[in-house]
Simulated scan of single mutants.
Amino acid sequence: MSSRSRLDYANPAAGARYDCIVLDHQALTGPREQVIEFCTHAAPIILVSSTPIEWLSGIVHDLVEKPVMGGAIANSVRRILAGEGRMRTK
């Protein structure tokens, strides 16, 4: 496990070396196209946000809503590592 305050847009493939990524919505800085490029090539992403981000709904694998309660993030990581599907989209 490692922690970063920002995404490495210069090297989007770097995100693929993890089993999954927990991404707080506040780390989504920069142009939308760069965020999409990173998320598309990265490992499965769990987005932590108070609301879904529509333009990422088909890209991230799960959404954990803020405020985070109990083991929500750990449960999401377990589901992803077990191979369960992508986030439900509207």
Rank of each mutant, 00 (worst) to 15 (best):
S3L: 13
R4D: 08
R4A: 14
R4E: 12
R6I: 02
A10N: 09
N11A: 11
P12W: 03
A13P: 01
A14Y: 08
A16W: 09
A16M: 11
R17C: 12
Y18F: 15
C20P: 09
V22D: 09
V22I: 14
L23G: 04
D24A: 11
A27I: 02
L28Q: 07
L28T: 06
T29Q: 11
T29C: 04
G30T: 09
P31R: 10
P31M: 03
R32W: 00
V35M: 13
E37I: 01
E37W: 00
C39S: 08
H41S: 09
P44F: 06
I46M: 08
I46Y: 07
L47H: 06
V48C: 15
S50H: 10
S50D: 15
S50W: 12
T51A: 13
W55T: 01
G58K: 14
I59V: 14
I59N: 08
V60D: 03
V60T: 11
L63A: 03
L63S: 01
L63K: 05
V64I: 08
P67R: 10
P67V: 06
M69H: 08
M69L: 12
M69S: 07
G71K: 10
G71A: 13
N75V: 00
N75A: 07
S76L: 06
S76W: 01
V77Y: 03
R78L: 11
I80V: 14
L81C: 11
G83R: 06
G83A: 10
E84S: 07
G85L: 07
G85R: 13
G85C: 05
G85P: 01
M87K: 13
R88K: 15
T89S: 14
K90A: 15
